[in-house]
Write a protein that binds this DNA or RNA. Structure first.
Length: 761
DNA sequence: CCTACTACGCTTTTT
DNA sequence: GCGTAGTAGG
């Protein structure tokens, strides 16, 4: 017991010891909340005899969940069998996989992403003759999603809408959308929560079963929960009331997608006997950084009073660079990073945070030029890539023929002569019979009503049926390989012989690796159900690799899940995605009024919008442990036009005493003149084809042996930025080869082989 | 039915 | 300034 409480402060101890009854922990940034949750659970298991199967711990990202499980198991020195440590979404999926039949779904339902949703809405608009230029699909989806966040179902929405022309129209689309999803046996992200709540409300026996099971519940990042999630947790905790929520109202940055800060206040309403514990000692940042954060956030009026303090050293001043253009801004970042590297900091101690993904371009360019390993976290999601979505659509079709969106996506991919008219023919038949697209295809073929188009449709049907037979006995990995082979997808890509096609093939290979990892994960102990206590049997959904299991895992993955702090590169990441992470050296880029805070927030009628931006600034600042550097550019290209902007008000809210304007600081000189925007003659930097990388892609910066380089001294090579040149030397460095190249246009450069990605010509 | 061109719309943030 | 979606022409 002592080991659990030893390294905690009094407040933290109090939180750990309070295992029974409702508990609200207001945990400031860097106050060790993860540590408290982990220790609290360990304490329950070791000292209170709580059985792991009675524990439900909900986190915000998959990454946070697996990290928590890892820490927990390390601390306890054993596998946490039976405990659910997961996100809201994955938790609800697990529940629905057992009981979806009670809310009108088949338990092998698929999960729709934003693209799938848009496709459905688009079809509905077509059906209702709605002009999508006037009413955008996104607008409908936004309305529907907000309604679901608040647990407003179609009927209630309709009642509320009565009299309002626009809302009535949304109601009509909402109704049709839900109908279409049920027809496709699909749920969107919001439905996962909504349908679980519906399940609990309609089936007290099912709810009672889960209440019995999860006697100890904790929720991390509580300030980011929406109403539906709050109700979901509330229902589960109603019986035993052992619920612990941990949050920080100052770090609430997801109001735009329904997060409800009121949940923090409401917690004390729903659980009037709730104990409230404040964690205000910060263990992460220097005094200076904390002062800056406190100064900024104190401008918000709507917050729970709280003052973070620290015993840490004063630290260096916050640096500010306010320069002419984004290229200079990136150069400053690079220069300071070089200094930190020189001082002995590793690459992964540095992170560039920004408000919008678009800002990553100029930074990426500078990192390539500087030959400093970096990784963009987020951006275009791997699973949103065309080729990946195509393959997944095949898998979905094989797994669940009622997913029309998936079937239609691949019915003519690769081209097999089934065009719009054939698809319409089948769809018409499907509507007539009131059956799914694929069954219509199947039935229609048997009845021979498709005429000339029948032949091609038949070969598609036969392909899917053959793959379904394959799916019966092969692993997910093998099945994907069958799909690639039998559909001709891979052959078509290989025939293309372009760089783009090669990148796609690599992405697909990565998906195959992902599938193999999934298959293997059931071979290891800890994930399998063997040895599971009897009471768990009915709760264990997955005890072996299945196609549905894989699809589910893949559909719930977020960008941040691929971030691996142990790998050595500089992280480029949005502030939103960086929440929960910490770095010695943090660069906050694009600190300009109009960009951060965004114009929309500055101009908004709701002052709450600006406050949310300020909380975002607070989150950004508090990611820093040792050094905080702010950069801003006087000009910036926005939608092809050059905008001129003032320094962000958030920067001006930091006391000048702790701010050091480094614009003219000499140590920063890079030796090269400040750059203007690149001229037209300058070769355009070709940005990486795959800025998004899997954590598993360790090969990125690893070169096993010199032969693996593919070139040698004297060879002619090409570099992404510097163009063509001759290799003059290759030296073995610590963990990589240092290659010296004499470029035609840029002269002699030395670079790390694994990062430079030189190609032999 | 497929390919190539044009226009538009997009930039908040993500489970 | 870029990527996608829709249209027109072959």
């Amino acid at each position: 017991m002592s080991s659990i409480l030893d390294r905690l402060n009094d407040r933290q101890k109090e939180a750990v010891l309070k295992t029974e009854g409702p508990l609200l922990i207001l945990a400031g940034a860097g106050s060790g909340k993860t540590r408290v949750i982990t220790n609290r659970i360990a304490y329950m298991i070791q000292e209170k005899g709580v059985y792991p199967g009675q524990i439900l711990a909900i986190t915000f990202t998959n990454k946070a969940a697996s990290e928590m499980r890892e820490r927990q198991e390390k601390m306890l020195g054993m596998a946490l069998r039976g405990a659910w440590i997961c996100t809201f979404h994955s938790c609800c999926v697990r529940i629905l996989r057992m009981h979806a039949d009670k809310v009108g779904y088949n338990t092998n339902f698929t999960i729709y992403d934003a693209d799938d949703q848009k496709t459905v809405i688009k079809n509905i608009c077509k059906k209702f003759d709605i002009d999508t230029k006037q009413f955008k699909e996104k607008w409908f989806l936004g309305q529907i999603s907000s309604a679901k966040d608040e647990l407003i179902d179609v009927d209630q929405f309709e009642r509320n809408a009565s009299g309002d022309y626009y809302l009535e129209r949304v109601a009509k689309v909402y109704r049709e959308y839900q109908k279409e999803l049920i027809r496709n046996n699909a749920m969107d992200f919001d439905d996962l929560i909504v349908k679980t709540v519906e399940l609990f409300r309609k089936n007290p026996d099912v709810l009672a079963m889960f209440q019995e099971r999860f006697r100890y519940i904790s929720v991390d990042e509580y300030q980011d929960t929406n109403t539906a999630q709050f109700v979901f947790v509330g229902l589960l905790a109603k019986k035993y009331r052992n619920i612990c929520v941990v949050g920080d109202d100052d770090q609430s940055i997801y109001k735009f997608r329904g997060a409800n800060i009121e949940n923090i206040l409401n917690f004390e309403k729903v659980f009037p006997d709730a104990a409230v514990i404040r964690l205000e000692q910060n263990y992460r940042s220097t005094k200076t950084i904390l002062n800056a954060a406190n100064a900024v956030i104190s401008n918000n009026t709507n917050r729970k009073a709280k003052t973070l303090w620290t015993d840490a050293e004063e630290g260096e001043k916050v640096r500010l660079f306010y320069v002419e253009n984004p290229y200079m801004e990136a150069d400053r970042v690079i220069a300071v990073i070089r200094k930190y590297l020189h001082d002995g900091y590793p690459l992964n101690s540095c992170a560039c945070l920004y408000r919008t993904n678009a800002q990553s371009r100029a930074l990426e360019e500078a990192f390539i030029r500087a030959n400093i390993p970096y990784k963009i976290v987020g951006g275009v999601n791997f699973y949103q890539r065309k080729e990946i979505k195509d393959i997944l659509a095949y898998l979905k079709t094989i797994d669940n023929g009622s997913d029309d969106v998936a079937v239609k996506r691949i019915i003519n991919v690769p081209k097999r002569g089934i065009g719009a008219s054939s698809v319409n023919l089948v769809q018409h038949f499907a509507d007539e019979r009131g059956i799914s697209f694929y069954s219509a295809l199947d039935t229609g073929l048997t009845e021979g009503i498709f005429g000339k188009a029948g032949e091609k449709l038949r070969s598609f049907r036969d392909l899917i049926e053959e793959l379904r037979r394959d799916a019966e006995e092969s692993s997910v990995k093998a099945l994907i390989e069958q799909v690639l082979d039998k559909s001709g997808y891979m052959m078509e890509l290989q025939a293309e012989q372009t760089v783009e096609a090669q990148t796609r093939i690599e992405n697909i290979e990565e998906l195959v690796n992902k599938a193999a990892a999934y298959d293997d994960s059931f071979q290891e102990p800890g994930r399998s159900a063997d040895g599971e206590e009897p009471q768990d049997e009915f709760l264990m959904v997955q005890d072996h690799a299945t196609l549905s299991g894989f699809l589910e895992e893949v559909s719930l993955i977020a960008d941040i899940d691929s971030w691996d702090g142990a790998e050595d590169y500089v992280s480029l990441i949005t502030i939103h995605s960086a929440k929960g992470l910490e770095f010695d050296n943090v660069f906050l880029c694009g600190m300009e009024d109009g960009l951060f805070p965004m114009n929309a927030a500055i101009c908004s009628d709701d002052p709450g919008d600006l406050e949310e931006e300020r909380r975002l600034a607070y989150v950004g600042i508090t990611r820093a442990k040792k050094h905080l550097v702010l950069t801003a550019s006087k000009t910036r290209m926005v939608r092809g036009e050059t905008m001129v902007s003032a320094l962000s008000r958030f920067v001006r809210e930091i006391p000048p005493m702790i701010l050091e304007n480094d614009r003219d600081n000499l140590y920063i000189k890079t030796g090269s003149a400040d750059r203007e925007a690149p001229s037209k003659s300058a070769s355009k930097v070709k940005l990486s084809d795959k800025p998004y990388l899997f954590a598993s892609e360790k090969k990125q910066f690893e070169v096993k042996n010199q032969a693996g380089l593919g070139y040698g001294v004297g060879d002619r090579v090409s570099h992404i930025k510097f163009g063509e040149g001759i290799v003059t030397a290759i030296d073995a460095g610590g963990k990589d080869f240092e290659v010296t190249v004499d470029f035609e246009d840029f002269g002699v450069k030395k670079m790390f082989a694994s990062f430079a990605k030189l190609e032999k010509l």
